[in-house]
Design a protein around this nucleic acid. Structure first.
Length: 617
DNA sequence: GAGCACTGC
């Protein structure tokens, strides 16, 4: 059985449907699992349904997210992140514990949901063949892309639910706007002068810097408005804004004072702000794209999709009828893509391919994706995994190696799990675990731009001439030496929350290591072992100093520059590893580690032999 | 001499 449910936000589908299914005894033989793209959503939905059922959270209704499992043997309805269900599937590709799987928020098309589409489809078929308990699948989406879903799931029937969304009037500009920042300023103050101050305005912009600059401008203009005009409070909103400041958007506005929220697309899905009457949509978003041929990631401002524009407009009609001003013409809107390109077509696939192999998918090259990634991206991922020793390609068969099997067990990018598994050979597992943990969470470095100089000078004592990895390691070790004080974090411009996360991730990785009997030891004062180990795992991300003083990557000879945030910014080591290559205003490499070229050759002699030949010919 | 959108295991 397979159903698609299309229902707008507010239709109550996510909280009600699991309960109906449970009451109809469909959950008798197994669990009803409901996936969510975000942790907070999984947790809060479980809490809400549990309350409606008047049960204690974690008994009949529970949730599972990374680091937190609030379920018991009694749990029949379980909310979990899509990534978590994917992890579970690696241990049990048939998802035997589940009688129903509900993939919610499917329109968001996260990589995890996209892989799950294929997994549940295959599990359903396989369970039928084996005459096991049938798997019922429900896919829930808020947008009209259900046709694509229906087609993928063999023309599964679609149920349409009525929403409780209020009507929204949409206005376009008459003429194309060359400067969307200026256009949004004009719109904000026009609304401000015409509408009652209790009507809040939500403006969609592209990034932190733009939002901070616009906040300043708005506040400045608001100061000089004519007598009788209402006051205005401006709230910036973006993900890297400290949590407490994010929460300010939920405060009730002062009487007679207008709330203006300037936000990134975080307000599109993750954060719902009450009382929005007006939405101003610039039609722009900052998004990452990936080029498999060059391995280049590009972060650039681009046009939103139609679906995204509708999602934004919808934010105006949550509590009352709303109005959306689009700062582009209707003709321009018609040229927007219907849907945002799913993430699976915009990312490095190494992790995904490794997971598919761990899921024992017979042929990952022909895996039934709803939206197929490009053959180039698949090829690049396979190549990467082969170079890392995770897979072997024999007679057009791709086989997961013993190493690859272990790599797939870590919640890490393949190159990082490779570093962890190699670390015993270099007697530096403790240090590698720390470094990898530091790299897999948001930066622990806190750089408020008002105290930039101070942060810089305080951090000097941690700087290692061997690069950013070693500098981060120094910071972590200093943090541990003082017993992980909050006070210490404040004094040293370290983000305490992210540091706490590092500790949690490190514990999880340590547990997985223990399961595999990975020997854990410290290299003590020997740092070259650590860098050698990194070289053996990150050799695909190496750059070489050129005669003219610039850098080029060894992989594709892409010219790159050291990012100014690196401790190596003013240095010119001959060979460096980098964690990330991102094109913003230039091609920058970030998070660097000084290495010896011999280590690179040792790590992958054949590969570097090939690369050298390429240079000479 | 930059300034990175957003998630997740």
């Amino acid at each position: 059985m397979m159903f698609l449910i299309q229902g707008e936000t507010g239709s109550g589908k996510t909280t009600q449907i699991p309960q109906y299914l449970y009451e109809a005894s469909i959950g008798r033989q197994g669990i009803i699992g409901i996936t969510q793209p975000r942790r907070v959503a999984a947790i809060s939905l479980a809490a809400r349904v549990s309350e409606e059922k008047k049960t204690e959270l974690g008994t009949l209704i529970g949730y599972t997210v990374r680091f937190e499992d609030l379920t018991s043997d009694k749990s029949k309805i379980k909310f979990l992140t899509d990534g978590m269900l994917l992890r579970e599937a690696i241990g049990d590709p048939l998802l035997r514990r589940y009688s129903v799987v509900i993939l919610d928020e499917a329109h968001e098309r996260t990589v995890h949901t996209d892989v799950l589409f294929g997994i549940v489809k295959a599990a359903q078929k396989k369970r039928k063949e084996l005459s096991k308990m049938p798997l019922k699948v429900l896919v829930m989406s808020a947008t009209m892309d259900v046709d694509l879903f229906s087609q993928y799931f063999d023309r599964a029937p679609v149920l349409y639910l009525e929403g409780r969304q209020h009507s929204i009037q949409v206005f376009y500009t008459k003429e194309s706007q060359s400067d969307y920042l200026h256009a949004s300023l004009v719109s904000i103050f026009q609304i401000h002068q015409e509408a009652p101050p209790s009507h809040s305005i939500l403006v969609f912009l592209t990034g932190q810097e733009e939002i901070e600059a616009m906040s300043r401008t708005c506040r400045e203009i608001a100061k000089h408005l004519p007598q009788g005009c209402a006051q205005m409070s401006v709230f910036p909103l973006y993900a890297s804004l400290p949590h407490l400041q994010q929460l300010r958007v939920f405060q009730l506005g002062q009487k007679g004072c207008r709330k203006v929220i300037l936000s990134t697309n975080i307000a599109e899905t993750s954060i719902t702000i009450p009382g929005i009457k007006y939405v101003v949509d610039t039609g722009m978003v900052k998004a990452k794209r990936y080029t498999p041929e060059s391995g280049l990631e590009v972060l650039a401002v681009q046009k939103v999709s139609k679906a995204q524009a509708w999602q934004r407009a919808g934010r105006a009609g949550r509590q009352q009828a709303g109005i959306c001003y689009r700062l582009y013409t209707e003709e321009e809107f018609e040229k927007f893509l219907n849907m945002t390109v799913p993430e699976i077509q915009r990312c490095n696939l190494a992790s995904v391919m490794l997971q598919l192999l761990a899921l024992r998918i017979p042929n990952i090259l022909t895996f039934d994706f709803m939206s197929k990634p490009s053959p180039d991206a698949v090829r690049a991922a396979i190549e990467q995994l082969e170079l890392l020793g995770a897979i072997e390609c024999k007679d057009s068969q791709i086989i997961l190696t013993q190493l690859g099997k272990k790599m797939a067990a870590f919640p890490l990018e393949p190159r990082f799990s490779k570093a962890v598994l190699l670390s015993p050979e270099f007697q530096c597992s403790e240090e590698i675990l720390t470094i990898v943990s530091l790299l897999s969470v948001d930066s622990v470095l806190y750089n408020p731009h008002t105290k930039r100089e101070e942060a810089h000078s305080v951090r000097k004592r941690f700087i290692s001439s061997e690069g950013d990895h070693m500098t981060l390691l120094n910071i972590y070790q200093a943090f541990k030496n003082v017993g992980g004080h909050k006070e210490w974090c404040r004094e040293n411009f370290v983000n305490g929350r992210n540091m706490a996360m590092v500790t949690e991730v490190r514990c999880q990785l340590r547990d997985i290591c223990a399961k595999f009997g990975v020997r854990l030891e410290s290299s003590r004062s020997n740092t070259s072992n650590i860098r050698q180990c990194l070289a053996h795992a990150l050799f695909l991300n190496a750059a070489e100093l050129q005669l003219d003083g610039t850098y080029a990557t060894l992989d594709t000879r892409q010219p790159v520059a050291i990012h100014p945030s690196s401790v190596l910014f003013n240095c010119k080591p001959s060979y460096i590893l980098y964690n990330e290559l991102l094109h913003t205003s230039k091609c920058y490499i970030r998070d660097l580690c000084v290495v010896d070229p011999e280590w690179l050759y040792e790590a992958a002699p054949e590969y570097f032999g090939r690369k050298l030949k390429g240079v000479n010919s």
